[in-house]
């Protein structure tokens, strides 16, 4: 089938899509957007997290056919022309990135959290990121990054 949807603000059309393949496969293999990672394909790790019509989802659990006409935002759409998104910068500055495999999913999930809750408590951060697994950091630097991003975003008055 032919699939048309908006990805990071740009209308994309791809052909020969098998409707039962995942949005994750479409993004990575057909649109050349490898930011969302594929680790488990069963919703357990969150490394494929993206925004679908404004809602945080696992791209591996969305069928390609379901996103016809939808609006998708991936980690690739976060940075500006010159600067990283404040959440991305906070992950770097806090040392929350080791191998980096979990990072795109965690950053998208963090952006989702901070858009809804500018000043989350530690338990709210843990709850919001519970669907994102990291095998390297032990999570404490990730929590630091989220707190840092929250402070910077509040200070800057953006989003």
């Amino acid at each position: 089938m032919r699939l048309t949807c908006t990805v990071n603000g740009k209308v994309e059309t791809v052909d020969d899509v098998w409707p039962g393949e995942s949005l994750l496969y479409v993004l990575r293999e057909r649109m050349g957007l490898p930011g969302a990672k594929n680790a488990c394909e069963q919703g357990e790790c969150g490394s494929c997290s993206v925004h679908l019509d404004g809602i945080l989802v696992c791209a591996c659990l969305v069928a390609a056919g379901q996103v016809e006409g939808a609006e998708i935002k991936t980690v690739e759409g976060l940075a500006g022309a010159k600067d990283l998104h404040p959440v991305q910068q906070a992950y770097l500055d806090a040392g929350a990135v080791q191998c980096g495999f979990c990072t795109p999913g965690l950053i998208v999930a963090t952006v989702d959290l901070l858009e809804k809750n500018a000043d989350p408590s530690d338990s709210e951060i843990r709850e919001a990121l519970a669907g994102n697994l990291c095998r390297c950091t032990g999570y404490s630097k990730i929590l630091d990054a989220v707190r840092l991003a929250a402070v910077r975003l509040e200070g800057a008055g953006v989003e």
Binding site: G43, G46, L56, C58, L61, A130
Partner: peptide, 9 residues
């Protein structure tokens, strides 16, 4: 249920 990503869908 699951995680936020699962509960959203």
């Amino acid at each position: 249920v699951g995680s936020l990503q699962i509960r959203n869908k």
